[in-house]
Design a protein around this nucleic acid. Structure first.
Ligand SMILES: [Zn+2]
Ligand SMILES: [Zn+2]
Ligand SMILES: [Zn+2]
Ligand SMILES: [Zn+2]
Lengths: 132, 132
DNA sequence: TTATAAATGTTATATTATTACATAACGTTA
DNA sequence: TAACGTTATGTAATAATATAACATTTATAA
């Protein structure tokens, strides 16, 4: 059961931009793109990004300092994310694989630590780039 | 088979510092700590870090912008890394679990992409912090 | 309505990382 | 050993990413 969050003005502007872009976007590139809509300062962008990450509408690609719209409606509020990243063209896509997410969500090691969250990033060459 | 790399002066100073610290260190904290040894500029630190990451002596904890010494001698040159991170005390440890690494190294999805590398970060509360 | 939380606006600043250019040390082999 | 290519170093400047602090406004709900 997923709580419905109605986005605020800035959150909506920024989410729509990222979502329409279809790929990962960096904070300052977002800032540049929304300045015509009245969002003028980095902090306004980062605050919206923080909230959007918190409610699972977007995810941060940690290795790239970039943000991508969730491509997986069943994503448990950003608590379990996996991405595939092409190291040549920088294309990113969210991996939605129930076996993988089950495996990782249930993973535990000898440390006695119970994990409530994970982020996995795979790297390689996408089909296109491989065939070049 | 692992190639033996002899570290240069700066690389050795910086690796020793990180290794002795026993945990993750941030670049500018490293810089501060090695200034008495003559390493004065950020770039000198980042260059050493880049090289140490490349040869697998350290890993970058992407979600923390920090660097930790490899705790796993069998780590395949930083191509397959997994960490457990306590969100309370920020303790980080490298996970060495052959089932996990086998599972992830062999993972492939419908995208046709063959992954050559991955990084996984688990988050939760460590034993200590859980019992507080 | 009134209180509370959430969001916004603005300025300044902190933190993380790279560009550009010059020089030095090292390893190979002619 | 001399010449060459490669790797490492030094230094200054700057770019890119992110947060602190404070004032104000808007939304939500008791
Ligand atoms: Zn998602
Ligand atoms: Zn590609
Ligand atoms: Zn390792
Ligand atoms: Zn802890």
């Amino acid at each position: 059961m997923q709580k419905v969050h109605s986005l605020s003005k800035n959150q909506k502007i920024i989410f729509d931009l990222i979502d329409k872009s279809g790929g990962p976007m960096k904070a300052y590139s977002i800032l540049f793109n929304v300045q015509k809509k009245g969002i003028k300062a980095p902090l306004q962008v980062y605050r919206a990004l923080d909230k959007l990450v918190e409610i699972g509408k977007i995810h941060k690609i940690e290795s790239r300092n970039a943000f991508i719209a969730c491509q997986n409606s069943s994503c448990q509020i950003s608590k379990a994310t996996a991405f595939s990243i092409c190291e040549s063209c920088e294309n990113v896509s969210e991996i939605s694989n129930s076996k993988l997410s089950k495996y990782l969500s249930n993973f535990s090691d000898h440390s006695g630590m119970k994990y409530s969250k994970y982020n996995l990033e795979f790297f390689g060459l996408c089909k296109k780039c491989k065939s070049k």
